[in-house]
Structure formats: C-alpha cells, structure tokens
Nucleic acid binder design. Structure first.
Lengths: 255, 255
DNA sequence: AAGTGGTCTAGACCACCAT
DNA sequence: TGGTGGTCTAGACCACTTA
C-alpha cells in the first residue's frame, strides 16, 4: 500500500485547520506502516495533489512534523521519515559522558539476561498490559566504555507489543534497541521522561558494576512514549558516576 | 528608544535569508534593551513596514523566535517578549518533584551566604571573567518543601555582569533568580547544560541538608547560557533525593 | 466594532543534490 | 540538467481578544 493510492478526506469547512488535518493523516500513515522509517516521502507537489490544498499548507504540516522529529527535509533530495540510528540516538537519548570531556560515545552493551515473565501491578498499569497477554519481557544489560562497566540497565516491555521478540533477535540486532523497536515492531519512541535519584548501590547491582555495596550511584527511571503518549518501555539504569557523568542540555522552550 | 524609530537595513540581495536577517535584528533589539521582557511587540503590519518585506517573511522570523522561547504570540492580543516568571520557571528550569507525584512546586529559598570574592581559574575560564574586574559573586541557598530542606545550591556569577547586585537586592527580589537576572541586569538565561553525579555527601553539605555525612546525594553542575551561548551562571546543587526526585522530559527533536 | 494573530492561496524564483 | 526543498510575495478571509 503506497501513500499515493490513499484517498484522503481533507475537509476545508472543518474547524480543524487544513495543515493539522494533513499532519494527522500523515501520522496515521506512520502508524499503519504506509510510511516507514527512512522512507522517502512523495514530493511537495504530489502532496499538494493528494491533499488538494496549496503548497504553503502542505509545507506547514511537514514543518510541524519536522519540528517534532518525525520527518526530516533535505534540500535537493526530498523529505524522509526519521529513524533512530546511531548518530541521532547518541544526541537524543544518550546522556553519558566522561569527566572532563563532552564527547559522547556509543557504549559497549552486553546482555546479561532476557526473560519472559508475568507483569507486576505497576507494569500492568504503566505499560497498559492487556489481560489476555499479561507477560512482559525483562532484560538486563551491562553498559561499558572501553571495557569498563559504568551502568546496569533493566528494560521492561510488553510482550504483546513486541511479538516474537526473543533473546537471539535482541542480541543480534545491528543497531540500537530503539532502532530495533522501530524497524521490527513499528514502535517509535518519540519522547521520554526520567526521574533521577542518588541511592546506595544494592548488593546485586554493585556486583554488576564492580563496586562496593552502598557506594553512591544514580538510579534513573525512564519511561519511553510513542507519538501518542503511550508508554511502551520502562528502563531503570543504575549508573556508577565515579568516572562518567549524566548530562542534559535544554533550551528555554522545552519543558 | 522605541523599535519603531530604528532604521533597519535588510538586504534583499544578501545570501542570508530575509527572515534570518529580521530574526537577528530583533535579537539585537533584545540585547540593546530596545525590546524588554514582557513588552508588546509592534503588530505584524507595522513590522512589515519597518523591515519592508511581506507579511509571510515577518511571520517566519517571529515563528522561529517563538520556537526558541524568546517571543510568544497571543491571537487577538499581540506578540510579546517572553519573560521568566514563576509559572514558566516551574516548567522550564525546575526539575524537582515529590515521589509518587508529578506536581511541581516553587521551593522555599533561604539565602545562607552572599560573598564577593576572587574568581578561581576555572570560573575565569568558564564565565569569561574580565581581568580588570576578576570578582565573582558566590551565593549559597537552601531549598525546601514544606520546611523540609532538600537541596543546597551554590551560585557563582561574574560581578562585572551584575553590577551593583548586593545581598539586599538578591534577598528582596519578588520573583525567581532568573527573573532578577533578566529584569535588573538584562541577562536572559536561554539554555543550560547540566551534569549529574551521585556522590557521598560532604560534611558541610550534609549539615545543611540535615542528613548523615556520606549519604548518597546528587551533585548537579549547571551552566546557564544566554542567547549567544555566553556562560553567565555556574550553579552547583546538592540534592537529597530520599523524598524527592530530579526529573527530565524530552522530545526526540531535542538534543 | 476594531485590532490582533492564524490560516490559506497561487504562484515566482533560488539553492541544493544527483546524474 | 531535472528534480527537490527553501524563500518570498501580495494579498484574502477567519478566529480570537478587548472594549
């Protein structure tokens, strides 16, 4: 199914602005996998014909989707559906740097365990786990720089949303975890919220990090959301900041 | 000096887009205090005449400044210069919440000390302290919720950039620190970067926070920047997260 | 009712990228 | 060279706010 074959219904008399109607239609195409990450969009002239509006209106809709990080325009080339890759991932979701340096590096990731288990009450609630398949996939990873482990990550996702995901697929992915979600399961993590605390390292975590129990570490609890604010991933990171730091940058516009 | 009296030189033959030239000119007005926080901008028709371009071009320039959080448009009212106030501050720069709650509250702030001192080498470097006035203002604050202290903040700013700032003015401000910077000294903090670590509480900090020495706490090192990426504030927060958490939210667009 | 920003049109021309 | 997005124009009409 190509986007060119779809009959769109844009209503010029609706109280919803045309550009918003178009944005929503393109959005639906992403959800229905008519548009896929990395794909080239039809050019603006074609979209003008598909939606039967003027080019400025199409550009407004695309501009908003670009600002939201969903599409990317490349002059002379075309407009593409964004995808998580190593580079963008590095700057969007990866917030660990060495002391005395601003360089970000892809960490070495080692999967420690991969389990299918019953969802806890909290997981059922936050991840909206269906009753007919109340399983979650629970994964532990160790992250390292130059062989030196700095973080232990626990990832929890709904088995229902990631059908057929198994340890082999997870370990043999050729890219980031978010890229895997996106390309194999059409789950695009568009935003996330994090809560950070300083805690004494529990014994099992201290062992994974190779530090003494009760050493101060960061506990970062992240919830990853789709475009539609649907929570799809719970990630808990335990970070030893004795040699690395957790960073954030922001503009005054962002909440 | 009103913006209406300025003779702007917009060059239609420049390789710089008109909208960018206009954006830069408006920017300069902010720096030169021709436009001040909270002020109403001239309407779009007037700007069209001032810059001698079409309305779409003016709107593009304003739109970008709005996205950057510098201007805000209100339909039926006009376009205003943004200012830090309690509400926006709460959502832009304030990242502390109670456990089990997403509510953000303005903390109670108590100034512990206010000193004028020689800048350290690091402060000279980062804050670009001038040789002819190598003093910095160093302030310690305690932050609390409902009387319960959760953070100790150290603020370091250049004395040269905040002339005549003294303890009385600082303590008797009627708004946030950032609002004070902006309204009294024309310093607008437009973005900031933070580095977070978990450390054992030093004795003096533990005393301020009312906890045992060596308890795990967050150390948050923030650098505040102006529009032009000029570092103007160093802030170090020591946070006891036993009852509160540090949060962040972000969209995939933001780095 | 008057004034503001918000939406939308129907083009023109330019800058960039691939071949 | 042909195709793409980027910039810009000169309006028209709508929705919202205040008075």
């Amino acid at each position: 199914m190509s986007i060119r074959d779809i009959k769109f219904n844009i209503d010029p008399n609706s109280k919803t602005p045309l550009w918003l109607q178009i944005k929503n239609e393109l959005f639906d195409c992403l959800e229905k996998e008519v548009l896929k990450p990395g794909q080239l969009m039809p050019n603006e002239k074609t979209l003008v014909e598909l939606f039967n509006v003027s080019i400025g209106t199409v550009r407004k809709a695309i501009g908003v989707l670009e600002n939201e990080g969903i599409l990317i325009r490349k002059q002379g080339l075309g407009t593409f559906v964004c995808q998580h890759d190593d580079h963008s991932f590095l700057f969007k979701y990866f917030h660990i740097v060495h002391h005395d340096s601003d360089e970000r590096h892809i960490p070495e990731v080692e999967c420690v365990s991969f389990e299918l288990k019953d969802a806890s009450d909290k997981e059922i609630d936050v991840l909206n786990i269906p009753k007919e398949n109340n399983k979650v996939i629970s994964i532990y990873n160790k992250l390292a720089f130059q062989g030196k482990v700095h973080s232990a990550d626990k990832i929890v996702i709904s088995a229902a949303k990631f059908p057929l995901l198994n340890e082999e697929i997870f370990i043999n992915r050729h890219n980031t975890v978010y890229n895997l979600y996106q390309n194999k399961f059409n789950v695009f993590i568009a935003k996330c919220s994090e809560r950070v605390r300083a805690i004494p390292a529990p014994v099992n975590v201290a062992k994974m990090l190779g530090i003494k129990a009760n050493s101060p570490i960061l506990k970062i609890s992240r919830v990853g959301f789709t475009y539609h604010d649907e929570a799809v991933e719970l990630r808990t990171s335990y970070v030893n900041t004795s040699e690395i730091e957790y960073i954030r940058q922001q503009y005054s516009t962002v909440g």
